[in-house]
Simulated assay, not measured.
Amino acid sequence: MDYQVEGKRAYCYTGGKPYKPSQPTAVFIHGAQNDHSVWGLQTRYFAHHGYNVLAVDLPGHGRSAGPALTSIEAISAWLLALLDAAGVERALLIGHSMGSLAALETAGAVPARVSKLAMVGTAYPMRVSDALLGAARDDEQRAIDMVNIWSHSTMSPKPSSPGPGFNVMEGSRRLMQRIAARGPEHLFHTDFSVCNSYAGGEAAAARVTCPTLLLLGQRDMMTPPKAARMIKESILHARSIEVAATGHALMTEQPDAVLDALYGFATEL
């Protein structure tokens, strides 16, 4: 579904279901060099089991118009404008990696509009190495390959995907290549710089009042579980779950485990 946010196209995947004001809304926010499709299994299940779904393409990603936003604070403001455009007063926010920081900032900035917060593959601070920043700026394909290696727990997970014949790592690689081809120049570098420069996480966490889940990959080399300690300790109602046999790409390596954790968290009283 298309919305107009600040005069530009903002695309959201809805799971094939129309918006129902009587239902709660879950907003899914992707990470760097990704789009809404990384949440394929989880969003469709939510949409067919009692939730309105808005799986966003952030500006400059996927089907949403650019330019890409250059700070977590700007992404948070855009998310709030999107909620206004969609007529959503309050939502569950689910963010992965860069998207988790945007969800955190939003929950801290406007607590009344966030019913629950789920941060997947998260860390604070979310530092990006100089080598990866440089590769993202000067050799984007090399950066894509680096991230795909570091984001997966193994080269050949068993099973690699619920869909026969689908390769998790190659699928992730092709998605990033597609986002690079369609998006603004140096998009990967922009996204990594956004993560690396965000300095408001501790203050935002201290202002979060809603129940919070940190969903972490036990073998995550990009945002290892220990790097989320500050967030967990700073949010009063936070708890964490570590998903076995997965790296940073939790939603594709362990889609069912991620779905079970997220839907269980969303529906608990």
Score class of each variant (00 low, 15 high):
P184R: 09
S151W: 09
H189R: 15
E233H: 14
T267E: 10
E268M: 08
I29T: 06
I29V: 15
Y263C: 01
G171V: 07
L117Y: 11
E268R: 15
S151R: 12
A55F: 05
S64C: 00
T25R: 08
A257T: 10
F188N: 00
E242R: 15
L83T: 06
G15P: 14
K226W: 13
G264L: 08
G121C: 07
M169L: 15
L80E: 09
A203M: 11
N34E: 15
V56C: 02
A135Q: 07
T43A: 15
D260K: 04
N52G: 13
A118K: 03
S156C: 12
G108V: 08
T70Y: 06
G87I: 12
G66E: 11
Q33D: 04
G165K: 09
A135P: 04
L269Q: 07
L269G: 03
H152R: 13
A77E: 12
H48K: 09
A74D: 12
N52F: 12
S129T: 10
E253Q: 09
A102M: 06
I72F: 02
R174N: 09
A107Y: 04
Q141T: 12
L214P: 08
M155T: 09
S160D: 13
A249C: 13
P59T: 11
L54Q: 08
E242H: 11
G165P: 15
N34Y: 04
A228K: 13
D220T: 08
P24C: 02
K116G: 03
A118C: 14
W150G: 00
S129D: 08
G200S: 06
P18F: 14
A249N: 14
V120H: 03
A68H: 10
M222Q: 12
A47V: 10
T70C: 07
A228H: 14
P184C: 02
F166I: 15
D35C: 06
I72K: 11
S156M: 14
A10C: 11
Y51T: 04
D220Y: 09
M169W: 07
D138P: 10
S22N: 10
A131W: 07
R142G: 00
A91Y: 11
Y124E: 10
T154L: 09
P157Q: 03
R44T: 07
L93P: 13
I29A: 01
H152I: 07
P125M: 06
C12E: 02
S161V: 07
V208T: 05
R207G: 01
T70K: 12
I235R: 02
A227L: 13
P211I: 06
A227N: 13
E89D: 15
Y263S: 06
T106Q: 01
G201C: 03
P159S: 06
L82R: 07
R63M: 04
Q42V: 03
V168E: 01
V128E: 07
A131N: 09
E202H: 10
E105W: 01
S197K: 06
D35N: 14
V128Y: 08
R127C: 01
A65W: 02
I29Y: 05
K226M: 08
P111S: 04
E185C: 01
V194A: 02
V243Y: 05
P224G: 11
D139A: 14
D191R: 00
P225W: 09
A102K: 00
V128A: 02
T246S: 15
P255G: 02
E268V: 01
